[in-house]
Amino acid sequence: MGQKIDTQKNEQPAIIQVSDLHKYFGNFHVLKGLNAEINRGEVVAMIGPSGSGKSTFLRCLNRLEEPTTGSIKIDGTEIVDHRIDINKIRTEIGMVFQDYNLFPHLNVIQNVTLAPVNVRRMKYKEAEEIGMNLLERVGVAEKAKQYPSNLSGGQQQRVAIARSLAMQPKIMFFDEPTSALDPEMIREVLDVMRGLAESGMTMVVVSHELGFIREASNKVLVLEDGLVIEEGTPDKVFNHAENQRTQQFLSMIL
């Protein structure tokens, strides 16, 4: 019986369901009743002018910001609820930040193994093995014993991705992962993200790398003033946008 419910839960296509999400910072109304649905295996890109609430929305999804009201279901679990253990949910969601936020006092491999060892209670040897594989995958394995301050921005961001992946999450969030990088480093990070998208990871990406969005994403959400004003495939949004504000915004960044 329990097994049946489980399989049902897994068959649900939407892994993230957001309805009527509001967020206030004091009196400042940032998110004004957002609705969104993200399916398993989808790569969703979020674009929009600065101050439109993209980052706040993303941070609400793992409750780094507390949503004011509304409903967010991650894999069927309602997380806008203080009785649930948000730490459990967060282990399923990887997050990559604009300024990497690696732990400067730990070397690269220690950064990657910290959470698996202390949250998943994995043996260090096992975590190290998984970690080294991931570092291999993102192409910084030879820096495993270095401290983050000795790495370039692009290398640090790739380590940050490996650090998130080490928890074997179901979903990955990227909050402007390439905005702080020099042009030649942007590519190495995007290549890693592209590989991740091809492997079938569910991804939510706040980014203005239109080339990457066109190529790698299934769905684009355009945010404006705390609302989703346009939603659809990259082709539809970039070439046949319905909303006038979307067209204006795209003409500015294209």
Partner: peptide, 15 residues
């Protein structure tokens, strides 16, 4: 931001 990075990995506040 350091706390946020740690918490987003699932570490509890005291961890």
């Amino acid at each position: 931001r350091q706390v946020e990075a740690a918490r987003s990995l699932g570490l509890r506040p005291m961890q």
